[in-house]
Design a binder for these strands. Structure first.
Lengths: 335, 335
DNA sequence: ATGAAAGCGCTAACAA
DNA sequence: TTGTTAGCGCTTTCAT
């Protein structure tokens, strides 16, 4: 069923029908009604390719991400898709599998107008951004999120690690902690440092003294880590609060507490970063800070659509920082 | 950059260039080389809309799923996308948010050839399949996975719950368990029963007697559930193995064991269904059965492409059952 | 081996 | 208010 057939059925010209369907002001209400009714009756749907070819608009955006295996990118897709659905756009998904070569191949595919805009979270192995620059030069609107190309002149959506660190620490302070340990891994310095600065500022703003013996950087070896935490928790001046910047360190701490007979949250309060939906279930007495994945997806999509709708006008180049969420899960137990 | 411009640059006709680019046998090797070189130089990319319009083929598939928030649909997308990328197809994602009305709206969007085929996992609220029948009548290849439309004549990819139940139970038996409890929720009877039948058959095949007091169906209330498990574990003939058909029941059991001073896996061995990547980390002494989400995605996509490539020939209508995986996580501890 | 031309289905400028 | 027509860029048949 196409316009031609529909027009014939209605004894109207193709263009009249086309205009009626798009609610053009130059078509009489009566005709419009007629056309709409017939279109519905015959289940007419515009051919997206003809339309896109003619209008040079795809009504489609592309999302280029590493994988969809963790608790972050899934909700991101949800956020992006929800905005796209609102705006009547379609969403193409491309996975790089953390491989720069695939990322390059994918951006090639997007150089021909298949998508009106692209949302990207870069692969781990990506060490230059020429392929993204190419896209940009082709006037394809581009928004980065989470794993952003720092040096590129394009909108970026990231979480606020400093703020998260501060909020997490403040939460423990508000709950009576006086000696808060900061547990971190050292492999992504920028994030760790931001979180640590939040931690330090929260402490000084509460007129407490910084204690370097409470700040620990961990390895990739479980036994070593467990030992470090055991040391921390058995010394006479042990912390009454633990802020773990990574989930697994919190879990280890959780276990060591159990081993040492320390009560959570009675003796030690633990807070950590986690996007695990079931974290509350798993650790009823642990508080978590959640990356606002869904919101980041929505924000990235919103920015992209602004660019798409004013195609070529790169008026929005700054970084958008979305605060993480403090999720206090220890009050309710959901089963 | 389009064919016309490229042809002009080369002093060739549009059709010659087009043919050369698609490696037609009616173009001389010399010309082909010339064309390819120029195309690369000028970064020519075919316009997908013109091509699709002309060929009536989109080189795109659509995936219609409820959400991407859990540990199941994420890996599914990975599986689907990996096959699509191999085949040179693009992947459109549509989320129903468990809402039948959205699902209907989405299937409407797919009635105009935008996708060459559709992979569906139905929304919870979907109570009839007219919208899918419509798609099918339009000769759009359709494959269901996980949440399948039982009554529809279309390929379906599901997991093998009976087999999973059997394997889980057998695993405990092989590890010396004699009295294995079966913990289940009652809200999805079909799945529960299948898993239970696997459990029962494994038991009888090992010449053990069925003990109905070891089979428990739980509620949605944590306290009640905890009480039931506490009862189970404190009676004199307590089980030495627990097969939980749902993750949270296993966790509760895990906690009650701790509370009662029962050793895991020394006194009680626990196995449960879980797609949580971190399950092994969280519960080093617990074994899990994993839904093969990634494989299901790949399988669904494979079947779909068979249909797409022989469009209209619905030669593959049977159910594909993919066995779940037994993941023994207690041997290694990944941090 | 190359080129001319029709047309996929739609939109929009222009005519009537 | 409605109709005519010229493409959007590509593929493909048919001619050369």
């Amino acid at each position: 069923m196409n316009l031609k057939q529909l027009a014939k059925e209605l004894n109207l010209s193709i263009s009249a029908v086309s205009k009626a369907l798009r609610d053009s002001h130059e078509i009489s209400p009566a005709t419009k009604a007629l056309v709409l009714a017939k279109a519905k009756e015959l289940n007419y749907q515009v051919n997206p390719f003809a339309s896109s070819l003619r209008k040079q608009i795809s009504k489609t955006i592309a999302v280029v991400i590493p994988e969809v295996v963790n608790d972050f990118f899934g909700p991101c897709i949800n956020g992006i898709e929800s905005i796209a659905q609102e705006k009547g756009y379609h969403v193409l998904i491309y996975l790089t599998h953390e491989d720069m070569q695939r990322e390059i191949a994918i951006t090639k595919l997007l150089q021909n107008g298949r998508a009106d805009g692209v949302i990207v979270s870069m692969s781990e192995t990506t060490n230059n951004t020429n392929h993204f620059e190419e896209l940009k030069n082709l006037e394809v609107p581009l928004v980065f999120f989470d794993r952003v190309a720092e040096l590129m002149d394009a909108p970026k959506v990231i979480t606020d690690d400093y703020h998260s660190g501060k909020v997490a620490t403040a939460h423990l302070l508000e709950n009576g902690c006086k000696r808060i340990a900061f547990l971190s891994i050292s492999n992504s310095l920028s994030i760790s440092n931001k979180r640590m600065n939040g931690y330090l500022d929260a402490i000084s703003e509460n007129n407490l003294k910084r204690d370097n013996s409470l700040m620990l950087w961990f390895t990739n070896d479980y036994a070593t880590n467990a030992g470090m935490i055991r040391n921390l928790l058995t010394k006479k001046n042990r912390p009454d609060g633990i802020f773990a910047s990574v989930e697994h360190l919190a879990i280890t701490a959780y276990e060591i507490c159990a081993e040492l007979g320390l009560n959570i949250p009675g003796d030690v309060k633990i807070i950590c970063f986690s996007n695990l939906k079931t974290a509350g279930l798993l650790y009823p007495s642990m508080t978590t800070i959640t990356q606002p994945a869904y919101e980041m997806g929505r924000e990235a999509a919103s920015i992209l659509f602004k660019l798409v709708e004013k195609k070529g006008h790169h008026f929005l180049q700054e970084k958008t920082v979305i605060p993480s969420r403090l999720v206090i899960r220890n009050s309710t137990r959901v089963v």
